[in-house]
Amino acid sequence: MNCCEFREKYSDFADGLLTSSESAETGTHLATCAACRRFDAALRAGLDALRALPSVGVSRGFGPRLRQRLRGELAVHVPIVARWSGTVGTLLLVATVGFIGWDLLDSRSAHRDKAAAATAWSPASLPLAATRPNPSHPDQRRYSADLRFDAFHPLNSILVSEDIRPTTAGDRLRFDVPAVWGGP
């Protein structure tokens, strides 16, 4: 064992954490190496001096200051919660009920708005059962349907796109719609 290896193992050696063979090897090096003996002696003397240092005590004001701070902690945490917990709970309950009520009213008015929008924009209901193949159309996959105006039907909305070909016949509208819309 050389001095570097000794220094690496020194801590474990001092704490008795080495195996018996390692401990014996380290002990032998310590006995034969003057530099490592000086190192060992310096550390032991230093540690003895360190442990002999007078203990530092708390000042007179430590206890009262801590007590005051702990009272401050109590003032912040315990009484506020205790005193106001009932009020806070009531407020929370009122706020929750208010929120639920407002949400219900809001959803109803949204429903009414939707119906109004349907009235304004949807021209007809689409009775799919009435759809039938349109043999006169060049694209055989298309279906056509006669539509009745039914402005208050909840599902009365239709996307107008280039695929829809409306034609008029008296008071009725005829739409040619692509087969992909799911005609019968």
Binding site: R7, E8, Y10, A14, F39, A42, A45, G46, L47
Partner: peptide, 13 residues
């Protein structure tokens, strides 16, 4: 801990 002990001994020796 080993490094601290080595440093401490080196400073004080």
């Amino acid at each position: 801990l080993n490094r601290a002990r080595n440093n401490f001994a080196s400073i004080i020796a």
